[in-house]
Amino acid sequence: MRLILVGPPGAGKGTQAGRLVAKYGIPQLSTGDMLRAAMAAGTPVGLAAKELVDNGKLVPDDVVVGIIRERIDEADAQKGFILDGFPRTVGQADALADMLKNKGLALDTVIELRVDQTKLVDRIMKRAADAASAGQPVRKDDDPEVFKGRLEAYNQDTAVVIPYYEKAGLLAVVDGMQSIDQVSSDVESVLANLDENV
């Protein structure tokens, strides 16, 4: 099963991907997590990415595509994977399609977590407050001003992948403003329909 979760920052992609990983035993390929790991390790890619991320900017396509290409080849991704945070642009979507085609693979579905963006800042502020009260570090990109920059970048760049996948007949839409459990249930319904159509 190879799928993409798409939606603006704070839509719940990471949460839903985590549940799918637990249920299906396939890895979540989160470019954000991989980039944060590279930043923490101080790698050249990580140092270059850190300045961009800290200012709410997107990392260039070539860096992200290279990370994903390498990751898909690892053993745990051979039965499938969940992409979270990639592709962010039509250019990345094209690169992903070419990459998979060259490997004899294809996507099964793209699930959009559709949300009310006016309520997302409140959701992010709550996430930051919950992390702080639990004694966990607050993500730099959870700062409200940085988050607004990420949301603007999403709307300018990433949102265009939704019609791209809709045109390809791969898009399924789930209401991301529901409870986490209801979103999970709706995602499972999409995946169950895939199984029936195989």
Rank of each mutant, 00 (worst) to 15 (best):
Phe86Gly: 04
Val161Ile: 15
Pro27Lys: 13
Glu152His: 12
Asp141Ala: 06
Gln28Met: 05
Gln28His: 04
Val138Asn: 06
Leu20Asp: 01
Ile162Pro: 02
Gly149His: 04
Ala41Asp: 14
Tyr24Ile: 11
Glu152Phe: 10
Lys79Glu: 14
Ala48Glu: 15
Val146Cys: 09
Arg150Asp: 01
Val161Pro: 00
Ile68Trp: 00
Ala128Asp: 08
Val63Tyr: 13
Asn155Glu: 09
Gln28Arg: 07
Asp94Val: 09
Gln178Ser: 01
Val64Glu: 14
Ile111Ala: 07
Ala172Leu: 05
Gly46Ala: 03
Met99Glu: 15
Gly10Phe: 00
Ala159Met: 07
Gly25Lys: 14
Thr43Met: 09
Gly169Cys: 06
Asp143Phe: 04
Gly91Trp: 07
Asp61Met: 09
Gly42Arg: 04
Asp141Gly: 14
Asn155Asp: 03
Leu58Gly: 10
Tyr164Leu: 04
Leu105Thr: 03
Arg19Met: 10
Lys23Arg: 06
Leu3Gly: 06
Ala49Lys: 02
Arg127Leu: 10
Gly169Pro: 03
Ile72Asp: 05
Ser133Lys: 13
Asn155Ile: 03
Val21Glu: 00
Gly149Thr: 08
Ser185Gly: 11
Ala131Glu: 02
Val138Pro: 11
Gly104Met: 07
Ala129Ile: 14
Val190Asn: 07
Ala153His: 01
Ser189Ala: 15
Tyr154Met: 12
Gly135Lys: 05
Met34Ile: 11
Phe81Pro: 11
Val138Ser: 13
Lys57Ile: 15
Ala40Phe: 12
Val63Leu: 15
Gln136Asp: 00
Ser30Asn: 06
Gly91Leu: 08
Leu194Asn: 12
Pro60Asn: 12
Asp84Thr: 01
Leu194Glu: 11
Asp94Ala: 08
Leu194Gln: 15
Asp54Gln: 08
Phe81Thr: 05
Val59Met: 12
Lys23Trp: 10
Glu112Val: 07
Gly7Ser: 07
Asn193Gly: 15
Leu100Ala: 06
Asp195Leu: 05
Leu170Val: 11
Ala41Trp: 06
Ala11Met: 02
Leu107Trp: 04
Pro87Gln: 07
Val115Met: 09
Asn55Ile: 06
Arg127Ser: 01
Lys50Trp: 04
Leu58Asn: 13
Leu35Asn: 02
Ser189Tyr: 08
Thr43Gly: 08
Val65Asn: 01
Glu74Ile: 05
Gly85Lys: 06
Gly42Cys: 11
Val110Cys: 07
Arg2Asp: 00
Ile82Met: 10
Arg2Gly: 11
Ser185His: 13
Ala77Thr: 02
Ala37Leu: 09
Pro27Phe: 15
Ser30Gln: 12
Met39Lys: 13
Lys167Val: 08
Glu152Gln: 11
Ala37Asn: 13
Gln16Ala: 12
Asp141Glu: 12
Gly14Glu: 01
Met125Val: 15
Asp130Met: 10
Glu112Pro: 08
Met177Ser: 05
Ile68Met: 05
Leu20Trp: 03
Lys13Asp: 04
Gly42Glu: 12
Arg139Leu: 04
Tyr24Glu: 12
Glu145Asp: 14
Ala77His: 10
Val45Pro: 08
